[in-house]
Nucleic acid binder design. Structure first.
Length: 403
DNA sequence: TCTGGGGTCCTAGGACCC
DNA sequence: TCTGGGGTCCTAGGACCC
């Protein structure tokens, strides 16, 4: 049995923990630059406020309705998330932190998963102040369905189990195609064109047809809806494959100096993230965009990928590379709205020696190779392993004999 | 009439998630 | 004037290899 624990209206709930006067009131949290709505309390949802609603188009309406507005505070949400996850880990041997406000739990072996989950839910509320909902089912996709219904059904007390096929069928009859995990608008439209208009019809469709039309991902969803588990719990999150740092600007940027400053800032933020995860990058991409909402303006989007001679997380080197990339794509005369950097080709820092000495004529490389050859001749091929960190164009590192 | 049969790697684009 | 910021996976097609 899987349980999906999802924090209710997470960012809005975090704001409430420290400002009790917000309880019972419509609260929304805004994105960066107060651009648009990214979280709503139940009271705000009841007023018909949409996710993603642009703030500047709704300011007056919110004011009239007495909506309380907060700018987002990500350090707070990250901290609250860690507290919730720590609390959950007391209730299961296996926990997958799926997002900032969601976790999958393995509840196999618990005699009464529902009772267990009710205690867990009460404990999270008591210890952190965050209300959560719990959906329990034999597959992750059905646990998502159960969670959604737990939120929609006040009588459930925030915990809902879909153990048998009868319960699952009744549950699937209550939701739309796009409520199913993995189905968004585009796929829903194509499914409807095929005559599949509800989650139940998808569950009971021919898996081969679904695979032929949509691929293996949706085929898995179909089986998961039947209660056949295709997605397992992933306790240890694998290394990131990309790290991005980007922002929309509050006002359009037109000067190259200002843009350089922004790109340097994003690059150093990305480098910090990378070091925290023990990673280094062998290439970075810089991108700039004009404002896509201003259709009357000339549009320009550009990216430039810069390959690094040496994989690194060194902020100074990365900023120099990013600024070089920016120079290649900078076109004066445009009003830029957004920019960012992305680190690709990530490696674990401890495996750095593989990417560090790309350049055959690097004096550090030459010296290292000579050393390694000598040692490998004495101790056998592959006997010597070097861990190195690159700084200032040369190398510093240590080696060890593996066998 | 006949025109190998596999592989891998890379990139771009499309779709999804929170 | 003002419309978020991150991520993942899959597929198709081309280059290239033996």
């Amino acid at each position: 049995m899987f349980a999906l624990v999802d924090c209710n209206n997470f960012y809005a709930s975090c704001e409430r923990v420290f400002q009790p006067k917000l309880r019972g009131k419509p609260v929304v949290v805004l994105s960066n630059n107060d651009g648009c709505v990214i979280a709503r309390s139940n009271e705000a949802k009841a007023l018909g406020i949409d996710m993603g609603a642009p703030w500047h188009l709704n300011r007056d309406r919110f004011k009239k309705a007495g909506v309380i507005v907060r700018s987002s505070n990500y350090p707070l949400y990250g901290d609250m998330s860690a507290r919730v996850m720590r609390t959950l880990s007391n209730f299961t041997p296996e926990l997958e932190v799926y997002s900032i406000d969601e976790a999958f739990l393995n509840l196999a072996g618990f005699a009464d998963p529902e009772a267990h989950s009710r205690v867990m839910r009460a404990t999270v509320l008591q210890w952190t102040g965050i209300p959560v909902s719990v959906g329990i089912a034999p597959t992750k996709t059905l646990a998502k369905v159960a969670n959604r219904l737990a939120k929609k059904t006040p009588e459930s007390g925030g915990v809902l189990v879909l153990a048998d096929e009868a319960a699952q069928t009744a549950a699937l009859a209550r939701i739309e195609l796009t409520d199913v995990w993995g189905i968004a608008n585009r796929i829903a439209v194509r499914l409807v064109e095929m005559g599949i208009t509800t989650p139940l019809e998808l569950r009971d469709a021919d898996p081969r047809k679904i695979r032929a039309a949509f691929g293996v991902v949706l085929e898995r969803t179909l089986y998961e809806l039947r209660g056949i588990s295709c997605l397992s719990l992933e306790e240890h999150s694998p290394d990131r494959k990309n790290i991005m740092a980007s922002r929309s600007f509050g006002r359009p940027v037109e000067s190259a100096d200002e843009m350089q400053e922004a790109v340097a800032t994003y690059m150093s933020r990305a480098a910090e993230k990378m070091r925290r995860q023990g990673l280094v990058t062998a290439s970075i991409t810089v991108f700039v965009n004009t404002n896509r909402f201003r259709e009357q303006d000339a549009q320009y989007y550009a990216t430039q990928t810069v390959r690094l001679p040496v994989a690194t997380a060194d902020t100074g080197k990365l900023i120099r590379a990013a600024l070089h990339g920016l120079k290649c794509i900078w076109r004066p005369g445009f009003s830029y709205k957004k920019a960012g950097v992305m680190c690709l080709d990530l490696h674990r820092a401890e495996n750095l020696q593989n990417s560090l000495f790309h350049q055959a004529d690097d004096p550090g490389r030459v010296e290292l190779m000579r050393l390694m050859d000598g040692l490998n001749q004495r101790f056998g091929r592959g006997a010597v392993h070097f861990a190195a960190t690159g700084t200032k164009g040369s190398f510093a590192g240590g080696g060890g004999i593996l066998r």
